[in-house]
Design a binder for these strands. Structure first.
Length: 549
RNA sequence: GCGGGUAUGAUCUAGUGGUUAUGAUAGUGGCUUCCCAAGCCACUUGCCCGGGUUCAAAUCCCGGUAUCCGCACCA
């Protein structure tokens, strides 16, 4: 079978210490991969470049929350319900189906009662339906253990800290919070190697904005930049501003983060020709999203791969957590001048309420006090799912004047969510070049220096002790300057260049006999193989400049 | 999950029911050479796991696992 680019990359990745299949000596497990020495380094560099965009450029704050997440959190977020498919199997051919796919329009309960549904494949009767949840579940503690899941996204950890983060951000919107970490999804059958993992790395930003002004302070700076958009039919190239004006993209904030994403991916080494934004159709959006764009990267093996999702989650998550935890997670929109407003307030009469509602009277009192009064004809209260009318003699309505400094609201959230492993794979694929030297295959990973796991190869031309000493000194001074080096004195010089090219090292410093007399070395560029001579004392600053641009 | 193909050192690969299981690449040590995978010598690493058939299984059969292709799944 002819090897395609994926096979070649996975071969190289395993051989050179980028990516290994996990648990291999015990047979391996689908959906899990280890990052080897170079892979870990590459991943770290990509994540740190991402942080540069979000922390330094966009002024986001970073937090870290547990990967084990309490049941209540994911119940509130909708993941427990929405992540669950009711599944049913055929007795004979063992085919599994989502119940909703077989039923159409009939309620699940009704269908189970009748139980006459046959397998669409072999017409045999089906077994009982059972729920399948794509989250890994676990327990916290022993005995009176609490239910928990391994988080399917890092976002919820940010949402449930919102009230604290809002305070940290000095109660001003917009502000963004990022988290880089692992997420877990118990995929039914992961294929496509590193593209679909059960444990994966993601980098997410949750940007909290005022729903009244869905924009970004830096929008003006990017408004004329071009975005490469795809609406499921046509490829269109629009400026950020025009995309918003023509309502192709819903709002300025969303468009801003799309541009930021594009800029990040390009500087990480994504080929602009293999990049596009695709808008989610109505039926493929997640349960929390009102609008979602995917940044897709093209792979010769897998086609267009979703690598970043940029969603407008509206107020969905914060509102859900407010509703189920009761915590005040609102933001305040301050008025320019305090407003004096007439307020009608309900004053509960406990002497009447108490005897009438007994134990529930206290709860009714707090609800009544919070009601925003518009219609005074009939006061009803939602009590444990039941609507209860409160008799008129149980309360008094008082009109007062109050000074209001602002109004409370639930912020909206723009969420750019990056699949690090997929991006990493695509960057390797986009950086992979193959040629021939003297009849042998010659592979080069043309990594952008900023993400290359090794920045500089340090190579003494011969094993002459004087050259080795100089090489060691240069190696030391580069490392002291924070630059990853690889010292190699084994084999011919050509072989050593080839080794460095194959792992994407952008520069090689070669110490030759002239280095002894005139204190210079050659610096070789990976992509051109051209060499220039530099004074040894200038090497570190020269390299430093080259790898940061 | 279903159906089909595949599984031999770190990587690629030859091979047969029966001696010590090929070859190449890579790697290590040594000699030699030194600016783009040169050469020589020596060395290291392997038949996916479990069960069965057989005097004998890496080879045949069954099950599992992984992987590839198609279907389904991918909030």
């Amino acid at each position: 079978m002819p090897q395609d680019i994926y096979d070649k990359i996975m071969m190289l990745a395993k051989r050179r210490g980028f990516i290994y299949p996990s648990f291999e000596i015990y047979g391996g497990v689908a959906g899990f991969y280890d990052y080897g020495p170079l892979g870990s380094r590459l991943k770290l560099n990509i994540e740190n470049l991402w942080r540069k965009f979000y922390i330094l450029q966009d002024n986001c704050i970073e937090i870290n929350t547990p990967t084990i997440t309490l049941y209540e959190v994911l119940k509130a977020s909708g993941h427990v319900n929405e992540f669950t498919d009711l599944t049913i199997d055929c007795k004979k051919c063992k085919q599994s189906y989502k119940v909703e796919d077989i039923l159409e329009n009939i309620s699940v309960a009704e269908a189970i009662k009748k139980n006459k549904i046959k397998c669409p494949n072999c017409s045999t009767e089906l077994k009982d339906a059972y729920p399948v949840n794509l989250m890994f579940s676990t327990k916290i503690g022993i005995g009176n253990a609490r239910d928990a899941f391994l988080r399917p996204e890092t976002a919820q950890g940010i949402f449930i800290d919102f009230h604290l983060l809002y305070r940290y951000a000095r109660e001003k919107l917009p502000f963004g919070v990022i988290q880089v970490g692992r997420g877990y999804r118990n995929e039914v059958s992961p294929r496509q190697g590193i593209i679909r993992l059960r444990e994966f790395s993601m980098a997410e930003a949750e940007v909290f904005i005022d729903p009244g002004e869905k924009t970004h302070p830096d929008f003006k700076k990017v408004k004329d930049k071009k975005l490469n958009l795809y609406d499921n039919i046509n490829q269109i190239n629009l400026s950020v501003e025009k995309a918003v004006k023509t309502k192709v993209i819903n709002n300025q904030a969303l468009a801003y983060y799309m541009y930021l994403t594009q800029e990040f991916l390009f500087s990480a080494g994504v080929d602009p020709k293999k990049f596009r934004f695709r808008k989610h159709a109505d039926n493929e959006r997640a349960h929390y999203a009102t609008e979602c764009w995917d940044a897709e990267l093209f792979s010769e093996r897998f086609g267009w791969i979703e690598c970043v999702g940029i969603a407008d989650r509206s107020a969905y998550d914060l509102q859900s957590h407010i509703d189920s935890s009761g915590k005040d997670m609102y933001a305040l929109r301050k008025y320019d001048k305090p407003k004096t407003v007439e307020v009608k307030k309900i004053i509960p009469k406990m002497s009447e309420l108490g005897p009438l509602f007994m134990g529930k009277a206290g709860k009714i009192k707090t609800i009544l006090e919070d009601i925003e009064l518009k219609d005074t004809k009939k006061i009803t209260v939602n009590l444990d799912g039941q609507t209860v009318e409160i008799p008129k003699n149980c309360y008094e309505i008082v009109e007062t004047k109050e000074k209001k400094f602002g109004e409370k609201f639930v912020p909206h959230v723009i969420e750019p969510s990056y699949g690090i492993d997929r991006i990493l794979y695509c960057i390797i694929e986009h950086s992979f070049y193959e040629g021939e030297k003297k009849g042998e295959d010659y592979k080069i990973l043309k990594f952008n220096p900023i993400i290359a796991p090794i920045k500089v190869g340090v190579l003494p031309l011969t094993s002459d002790e004087r050259l080795v000493n100089i090489a060691n000194e240069i190696d030391r001074s580069l490392r002291n300057a924070g630059i990853e080096t690889y010292y190699d004195d084994g084999g011919s010089i050509g072989r050593r260049y080839a080794r460095m090219d194959e792992v994407g090292t952008p520069f090689c410093i070669t110490i030759d006999h002239d280095s002894i007399s005139d204190k210079t070395v050659t610096i070789r560029d990976r992509d051109t193989t051209k060499q220039i001579r530099k004074k040894i004392e200038e090497v570190t600053s020269f390299i430093k400049e080259k790898i940061s641009s």
